[in-house]
Simulated assay, not measured.
Amino acid sequence: MTAPHPTVRHLYVHVPFCPSICPYCDFHVLTRRAGLVEQYLERVEDEAARLAGEYAVDLDTVYIGGGTPSFLRDAEITALAGSVRRHLGWGRLENTLEINPGTVSVDRAALWRDLGFDRASVGVQSLDDATLKFLGRQHDARQAREAVTTLVGTGFRVSGDLITAVSGQPLESDIRGLVDLGVGHVSAYTLTIEPGTEFARRGVTVEEDDERAGFEQTEALLGQLGFTRYEVSNYARPGQESRHNLAYWLGRTYLGLGPGAAGHYPAGRLPHTPHPTPHNLLTTRRTNPHLHDWLTGAAGEVQPIDAEEYVTDALFMGLRLRAGVNLADLTRRSGLDVRERYAGAIAANVRLGLLTLEGDHLRATPQGWWTLNRVVTDFLEA
């Protein structure tokens, strides 16, 4: 079987296991039970082999997320990394492991580095014990500081996650404290109450004023500390941007491995079928089923992407970036004249001060970032 082109250069691996489920979390996660991790690792091996046979793969980035990948025992994370390397290779540019502060030790950090991980995304969330308790985190502020310090000292490029808009949170102290620990990247997410979560069942709410204040305070303070906001929720020192996440925002194809993992695939053919896709489809998206169905080999949800959907997806993701979207490049990639097709939506949002258009570069303004869903809805309805 000939693997289709173009080459896929990015891989996301989902590890669904967590020591506990946070009250705000709506990801596909679960606590480990006897035998489940072993079954998961066997299935990862099989799925990695299948992906290697179906697609041309030459990886620039690998991102192992969850869940809590660092919750895997040493032999388990070694086996997982081995399956990826054996069938799909390893990222030339960046290999990220998501890490819970409570799982870090000097020896474990050294093992992760030896396995080839060079970037750590650490779920700090806050450096205030009261805030961490409210968020249901299992680590405390001391563990978070020690974890980041250990990872920086082991040679990782470290990104720290923060949650903002928590009532009573000392946000400035959280930000300054995280930066002082030596991180080169910060991901700052507003606390969002998702349906079905424990917070939703408890009636927890987030005030819009707190949300907006956190949004603005984070950008202002990190800017003073030498970080650039290169995406709505992400800040980096020069050269410390997440290369893997940039692939998502730039509309690149990537493999999704593991239960609940989503992938964006070349449209040479639909996954699990011998037939070519229709000529007007550019890519396909597939979302794997959750763990128990995935373990049986059940097929995931497949969504063929035509030119118009490709463009609206690219606008939704690309407008999250400070650099915005190059409309000429998007026209070339999609075969659709983007400026002509969406002239009305572009003009209307420029008039409202939500977008700017300079040459071929379409960008969201700060107000446009705040109302990005509304902006993209205009394109969907065009």
Rank of each mutant, 00 (worst) to 15 (best):
T273Y: 05
I175L: 13
N288W: 07
E381Q: 15
R50S: 11
F156G: 12
P69W: 02
L93R: 15
R341Q: 09
S20D: 08
N245K: 03
S233R: 03
A348L: 09
R333M: 10
H279T: 13
L132R: 07
T31Q: 13
L355N: 03
M1E: 12
A247Q: 11
Y230H: 02
L97W: 01
R32M: 13
P170N: 00
Q303S: 13
L336V: 07
T287Y: 08
G223C: 08
R9G: 11
W294L: 04
E45C: 14
L127C: 09
L97I: 05
L336Q: 03
L36D: 09
M1C: 07
V152Q: 12
V325N: 03
T197K: 13
I21F: 04
V44N: 07
G91T: 04
P276F: 04
G251I: 01
I175E: 04
V106D: 13
M1Q: 09
L321C: 05
E309H: 12
D174G: 07
G226K: 04
R142C: 11
T68H: 01
T312Q: 06
V325K: 00
E172M: 05
L221Q: 05
V152K: 10
G353I: 06
T190C: 15
G203Y: 03
P195C: 12
V311Y: 00
D337Q: 09
D26I: 13
Y265T: 04
L315C: 09
G239L: 02
I163Q: 01
S242P: 05
E208Y: 08
T131I: 12
L178N: 00
A56V: 11
T365V: 08
S105D: 05
K133R: 15
E358F: 12
A298R: 12
Q39A: 15
L88T: 11
F215W: 15
H87G: 12
A343V: 06
R339N: 05
A213S: 15
T287Q: 15
V206W: 01
G263Q: 10
P276G: 06
F17S: 01
A81K: 06
H361T: 13
S334N: 00
P101I: 02
R320C: 01
Y248R: 07
A120W: 00
Q143A: 08
A382N: 14
L327F: 10
L51D: 06
I305F: 00
S20Y: 02
G251V: 04
S126A: 12
